[in-house]
Every structure is written in structure tokens, then in C-alpha cells.
Amino acid sequence: MSQRPTLHVTIVTAERTVYDGEAEMVNAPGSEGQLGILPRHAPLLTLLKVGELRVRHGGADEGFFIGGGFLEVNRNVVTVLADDAERASTIDESKAEEARRRAEAILAQRPEGMDEAAVAAELERAVGRLHVADLHRRRGGRAARPPSDQELGG
């Protein structure tokens, strides 16, 4: 068996399965810092924070927005239980921008009975979405491919 092992990755939210496929590497926003997961990783269970999760498949990275959740690694199977998740290529930036402005407005006005933690979390997710969409664009737009040296330099 000389074939290199791969990871099987599933990203699920309460509503749907966002990704289900093979990968050579996963890069995840762990609560204790960015995590790189390769095949034969030891069993791991970690919290995720809001951020970008990258799945490397066929030498190309695909970005996902993750709105917090859990990540489990066990026997080359990576399972992401996300509170919110979306492919970077499908993020609606104008909607995220609007959500960001709305959350900021609420935080500035501080209306009676505001659930500050919830609004702050909303804001964090909107900012995270915009950031992930931005990273995706820099990496070369729609097609998932590795960044060129030029892009990395810029």
C-alpha cells in the first residue's frame, strides 16, 4: 500500500451538508490558534472560532467561512460541526456588508433590552464572512487554485 492516505472531510451545519469529500490537508481556525491537519493526524477534538477553513484538494485550496463550532479528527476523518458555514465562492458580500452595518448601528445605539452578546456575535460573523470572501478573491477569484508567487508577494 504505497498510496498516500487522504483525509475524508465533511462540513455540516444544522441545516445542510456544506462539503463532503477527500482532501490532502485541512487548515482550520481552532479556538487555540490556526490548525493544520494532515493525514494520520492524532485524534483531536477542538472548538472552532469564526474564521476561514481551507480544504486542500488536488493541490488547490478551497476556502470556507466557518461561524464557530467543533472539529473532530479521528482515523483520517475530519468532521466539522459548524454553527454556520458557507463556501467562500458563494458568499454574498453585499448581504454580509449590510449585516455588519446593521450590527454596528445596534451596538452604537444600544437600544433597551439589547442582547449585546448576540449582536456582537452577529457582527463577528459578518466581519468574518467579508474577510473570507476577501481572501478568496485575492487567491484568484472563482476557480479554486493555489496562489501564484506574485499574488503571495502582493
Binding site: S31, E32, A42, L44, L45, T46, L47, F70, E72, N74
Partner: peptide, 19 residues
């Protein structure tokens, strides 16, 4: 499996409960 927990098992457990 003998997991590595980050940050620790109890914290993760208490985060799982509300979900």
C-alpha cells in the same frame, strides 16, 4: 479514541450541550 482536547474536554462538553 484518545482525543487531544483543545481547550479541554469539559469546556467542549459544555459548549456542545446548548447545541
Amino acid at each position: 479514541p484518545q482525543y487531544i482536547y483543545e481547550p479541554d474536554a469539559v469546556t467542549i462538553f459544555s459548549e456542545l450541550l446548548p447545541r
